[in-house]
């Protein structure tokens, strides 16, 4: 079973700092990590490989530094990594990103399954997974929380919906986007890290891919960012302190009065 996992390198968002003047993210000193939601895709891909054999290839589009994310994926247990990198890809939106990733996946070779994270924690669109499925005409299951069964040519999965779950059967090859319920991602092992160090990661550039230049980068992206704003965080609400029984009582009474004013009760 050949499994491809498209991943994304993202800034570690827990301590993101914004430049109040420009409204852009201060990237200096911000560590880059594998998109946390991609770790679940990597994990389930490795589990399926362990059960059914084959290999897992992680692929990412990004600057040369995104190599680090691929090394981490290999350290976790992926067999190979492919970096898709070219200045001409810069500024790509989800459409153009998916377009290039599809070309890269086709170049990797025969694929039985593509597993992607639900979305990236920076862009937060969740579009590239379904985009790739559409472009490759692969049957798609999104928000997958469980792989129930897998045979050589079909799989049954559970998908998280607003109302609960639904069970879908897909023929292979197929594409899944997975949610964190699916499994708990393993940590890289020392052996994995050593293997990552010696594993050569090929870089695909425009010259290596069967792409139309019109579909690349900013030029190939139907969407344009018009402006970026930093929203105001503070609401300046009423904050009451509880220090004893009396202030506790008052605070709760105040809260109930507030809820009445807001017509919550």
């Amino acid at each position: 079973m050949n499994i491809v996992v498209p991943i994304k390198q993202v800034p570690e968002t827990s301590n993101v700092k914004m430049d109040p003047e420009t409204g852009t993210m201060i990237r200096d000193g911000v560590e880059s990590i594998i998109n946390p939601l991609d770790l679940y895709a990597i994990e389930i891909a490795i589990q399926l490989k362990e059960k059914f054999g084959g290999k897992v290839t992680a692929v990412t589009m990004g600057p040369p530094a995104a190599n680090k994310a691929l090394k981490e994926a290999i350290a976790m247990g992926c067999d190979e990594g492919v970096l898709v990198s070219d200045r001409k890809f810069a500024g790509a939106d989800t459409w153009s990103t998916a377009y290039v990733l599809v070309k890269a996946i086709e170049r990797i070779g025969e694929v039985d399954l593509v597993v992607a994270g639900e979305r990236a924690t920076d862009g937060d669109t969740g579009q590239v997974g379904p985009n790739i499925a559409a472009a490759m005409n692969l049957p798609l299951a999104t928000y997958v929380s469980k792989v129930e069964s897998l045979t050589e040519n079909s799989m049954t999965v559970e998908r998280l919906t607003e109302e609960g779950y639904e069970k879908l059967q897909l023929p292979l090859p197929a594409l899944l986007t997975v949610v964190k319920e699916i499994s708990y991602p393993r940590l890289p092992t020392l052996r994995g890290k050593q293997r990552a160090k010696i594993t050569d990661i090929p870089t695909y550039t425009v010259a290596d891919l069967d792409v139309e230049e019109n579909n690349l980068g900013l030029k190939g992206s139907p969407t344009r960012v018009v402006k970026i704003e930093t929203p105001k965080v503070t609401r300046g609400g009423k904050i009451l302190k509880v220090v004893d029984d009396q202030s506790l009582n008052e605070a709760v009474d105040n809260l109930i009065a507030f809820m009445k004013m807001k017509e919550i009760i």
Binding site: D93, T94, W95, A98, D124, T125, G126, Q127, V128, G129, P130, N131, I132, A133, A134, A135, L140, T142, Y143, R159, L160, T161, E162, S221, P222, T223
Partner: peptide
């Protein structure tokens, strides 16, 4: 931007090369 909306729209947008903004 429900689970189905966020599945259908990128599927369609990719095929017709249309711009799509999420959520």
């Amino acid at each position: 931007a429900t689970v189905n909306g966020r599945t259908l729209m990128p599927h369609v947008a990719m095929k017709i090369h249309a711009g799509l903004t999420a959520d």
